[in-house]
Simulated assay, not measured.
Amino acid sequence: MTKIRFAGLFLCFTVNAAFAEDRVVTGVTDRQADELEQIVRSHLIDPYSAKVPVMHVTIGAVEDRHLCGAVNSKNIYGAYSGLRPFYMPFETLTPQFPDTEAEHLAIMAICDGWGLSVSDQVFTFSYE
């Protein structure tokens, strides 16, 4: 009986660990990152499905701060679209998501120019 309980407990911890997501955040506290993530989510088709594993924020005055990151969320067909880069100026708090491959590369270049590289993440190019 003890073996069964131990195996069940081990399975619960293993399953929970498998669903735990790592998030890389720089430039803000965890609480601020949660608030910024909610803003990003609010601009998506399915905000509840969104996964934002990467967020980098520039350091400086509020009007000079920008958020660069990556998001994976469901599209209008209910399927995950793959990681896409985004950026959001703190002045407007309106995230910019790419609609074309050219915009995708432009956002990555903007973030790289600010020293907020999201290029090390795997992004998909599935724009039509």
Score class of each variant (00 low, 15 high):
Leu11Asn: 05
Leu11Ile: 13
Phe13Pro: 03
Thr14Tyr: 12
Thr14Ser: 11
Thr14Phe: 14
Val15Gly: 06
Asn16Pro: 13
Ala17Cys: 11
Ala18Gln: 03
Ala20Lys: 07
Ala20Gly: 06
Glu21Tyr: 11
Asp22Asn: 13
Arg23Phe: 09
Val24Ala: 09
Val24Tyr: 08
Val25Phe: 04
Val25Ala: 08
Val28Leu: 04
Asp30Ala: 05
Arg31Asn: 11
Gln32Cys: 11
Gln32Arg: 14
Asp34Ser: 13
Glu35Gln: 13
Glu37Ser: 15
Gln38Met: 10
Gln38Cys: 09
Ile39Tyr: 05
Ile39Gly: 13
Arg41Pro: 02
Arg41Glu: 07
Arg41Val: 01
His43Tyr: 02
Ile45Ala: 15
Asp46Cys: 09
Pro47Asn: 12
Tyr48Gln: 14
Tyr48Trp: 12
Ala50Phe: 12
Ala50Pro: 01
Ala50Asp: 02
Ala50Val: 05
Lys51Cys: 03
Lys51His: 08
Lys51Gln: 10
Pro53Val: 14
His56Gln: 14
Thr58Asn: 05
Ala61Glu: 03
Glu63His: 09
Asp64Arg: 15
Asp64Gln: 11
His66Met: 14
Leu67Asp: 09
Cys68Leu: 01
Cys68Asn: 00
Cys68Ala: 01
Gly69Ala: 12
Gly69Asn: 11
Asn72Gly: 14
Lys74Phe: 10
Lys74Arg: 15
Ile76Trp: 01
Ala79Asn: 06
Ala79Gly: 08
Tyr80Ile: 12
Tyr80Ala: 15
Tyr80Arg: 14
Ser81Leu: 01
Gly82Trp: 06
Leu83Gln: 12
Arg84Leu: 15
Arg84Gly: 12
Phe86Ala: 09
Phe86Pro: 14
Tyr87Lys: 03
Tyr87Ala: 10
Met88Asn: 09
Pro89Tyr: 03
Pro89Gly: 08
Glu91His: 07
Thr92Val: 07
Thr92Ile: 10
Pro95Asn: 03
Pro98His: 02
Asp99Arg: 12
Asp99Phe: 08
Thr100Tyr: 01
Thr100Gln: 07
Glu101Thr: 12
Ala102Tyr: 00
Glu103Thr: 04
Glu103Asn: 02
Leu105Asp: 15
Leu105Cys: 05
Leu105Gly: 08
Ala106Asp: 06
Ala106Gln: 04
Ile107Leu: 06
Met108Trp: 03
Met108Leu: 08
Ala109Met: 02
Ala109Cys: 02
Ile110Trp: 00
Ile110Val: 08
Ile110Cys: 00
Cys111Asn: 05
Cys111Arg: 02
Cys111Pro: 00
Gly113Leu: 05
Trp114Asp: 12
